[in-house]
Structure formats: C-alpha cells, structure tokens
C-alpha cells in the first residue's frame, strides 16, 4: 500500500481535484484505491456524491471503531471513499491530547493495507499538528503548485518546515496546477523552476473548465469528460508519479 497525501499550506490550489482524479486514474488501472477526505469542508466527498458523516470520526481515530466500517463504495470500480467527518474539525485539539500524535493516523491506516494498493489523503490547508500526523502517515507528499509568486513562497515555507521537522523518507513530488499558458508569469515560473528542483514533475495540469465542472457533475473529470485535456493531463501525471516511484 502506498499512501499519498495531497497537500499545500495554501488553499484553492487544486489539491482535492488532484486527490480525486489521481485516485480515479489508479482505480481505472485496477488498483484498489481509497480517498480519505480529511478536510472538514468535505469537497472530495462532495465530488463522490457522499454526504459528510456527522459522527464516528473521533472513535475511528482513537481506534474504538475500525476505519473500514466508515468506508463507502464510490460509483466507480475499485475506488472507495472515507468521507469527511465533522469531528475532523477538532482533529488538532484531539491530537494534542493523544500520546504520540504524529504516528496516530498512520497506525489507523495500517489495517487497510490488505484492502488497498493506493490511499490518497486529502488534507486541509494548514500547517498544524494534524498536518504533522499526515506527513508521518504518508509515503509520498503530492504538492500542487499554482505558478505564482505567492504560491511558490508557500512551497518554500513547506520545504523549510519539512527540512526541519518532517519525517525522514517522506518523498515529495510537486506539480503545477491551474496553469494558464497565456500568462507570462506562469510560463516563466514553469520554465525556470523544474530545472532547479528535481522534485517538480514535468506534467502540468492546465486551468480548464472541465476541472471546474467537477462541481456540478460531482464526479472525477475522467468519468464525464474522458477525452478532455484535463482528464488527459491527470492520466499523464499519474503515469509520471508511478514511474518516479517505480510502482509498475
């Protein structure tokens, strides 16, 4: 089981879209995949037409209730969802009380390893105890980047944080999202950065109306616009990630 976490300190960078679409790509290849919606806003759950749960989340984190009992099958083969849970709003407070908070999430994920080949954690955009726990649980951090100055600044901050406090062995892969090739700034950044930063992938997710349509369609892009540029870009991105990680 490989645990991916889509993460960025900054919000609105296409983090949830990446988790949902990459999980869809993995599942389409027959890899049993799970999306865990850890963001109390529940956007990933919404994309799968599943309402956030109102209870049971705390028990699941504490180990009183098996995570498996909260899993919902999505409308797509080999793709399941752990829906958002309102009690995740208090994740930080609760982790603060727990012993060894940073290893808590990873421990709870372990029993799922016989069921799933890929797990995608969709995380809230904060830098907190919760994100530290996520860094420990994940094997790979997938970092969506909008090619703007502010977004890069947030990326630098994250890198600095991980260098100091991040767990060893956590792979980091970043990629550009919401890229607009008509904007000179976007183009400049996308051209300059990958050369300096080997962890930045070559595939770019374009700013596309299909990604926005995930809201009204409530489905991954590949499910309603398989031939679109955006769907193609996510498939390419998944292929590049697989290749980088030697996932076969």
């Amino acid at each position: 089981m490989t645990v991916f976490a889509t993460y960025n300190i900054k919000g609105g960078v296409g983090k949830t879209a990446a988790a949902v679409n990459l999980a869809y790509c993995a599942a389409q290849e027959g890899r049993r995949s799970l999306v865990w919606d850890l963001d109390p806003q529940g956007a990933a759950s919404y994309y799968f037409r599943v309402r956030p749960e109102t209870g049971g989340g705390k028990g699941a984190l504490k180990g009183k209730r098996e995570l498996e009992s909260l899993v919902k099958g999505t409308d797509f083969p080999d793709l399941d969802l752990l829906p958002a849970n309102f009690s995740f709003r208090n994740l930080d407070v609760w982790l603060d009380d727990a012993r060894k908070p940073e290893s808590r999430l990873g421990k709870r994920l372990k029993p799922l390893s016989r069921d799933y080949e890929c797990v995608f954690l969709d995380c809230a955009p904060t830098l907190s105890l919760a994100s530290e726990s996520i860094f420990h649980a994940a094997d790979v951090l997938l970092i969506p980047l909008i090619p703007t100055t502010l977004s890069l600044r947030a990326f630098e901050q994250l890198q600095a944080f991980l260098a100091e406090k991040g767990p060893k062995g956590l792979r980091r892969l970043a990629f550009f999202t919401m890229a607009d090739r008509r904007k000179k700034l976007h183009l400049d950044i996308m051209e300059a950065l990958p050369g300096e930063r080997p962890e930045i992938l070559g595939t770019v997710i374009p700013q596309a109306s299909e990604v926005e349509r995930m809201g009204p369609e409530q489905a991954p892009v590949g499910a309603f616009a398989a031939a679109s540029k955006a769907a193609h870009a996510y498939r390419e991105l998944w292929a590049e990630i697989r290749q980088r990680l030697d996932l076969g």
Partner: peptide
C-alpha cells in the same frame, strides 16, 4: 490486480 474479494 485487485486485492480485495469482489463486492458482496
């Protein structure tokens, strides 16, 4: 490649 039994 599926690791899980087919759905009920």
């Amino acid at each position: 490649m599926s690791l899980m039994p087919p759905p009920e």
